[in-house]
Amino acid sequence: AEDTGVRVELAEEDDGKKAAIALKLWVEDPKKLKGKYKESGAIEFTFDLEKETPEGVAQEMVESGFFHESDAKIVGKSIRDRVALIKWRRERNVSAGP
């Protein structure tokens, strides 16, 4: 995935079944952000793979004051990349069988 300066990782091991996964997001390279970033640490949240969109979560982070509006896109993309990888892994495990 492209280096966006924002790192997103699983906060707990993915069991491959739950729609809601726990993710952890933090800024690795503040220089890649356009707006002012509130240096608060890692943000942990749950993400529903079926009902939610990465951009929606990014917007909520902006509204909560973690990121500037101009960085919603880069945060959303970072979450989207990680979510795509998790979905890909799940599909691969399903097709590989037990």
Binding site: R7, W26, E28, A42, E44, F45, E60, E63, S64, F66
Partner: peptide, 26 residues
């Protein structure tokens, strides 16, 4: 220590310190 932020949509964000080992060297 972790802090919690609950958005108007009901989402909960838990903020915790990033382990130094996981930060890129500046």
């Amino acid at each position: 220590s972790a802090a919690q932020v609950v958005t108007s949509a009901g989402r909960r964000f838990i903020v915790s310190p990033v382990p130094e080992s996981r930060l890129k060297e500046q």
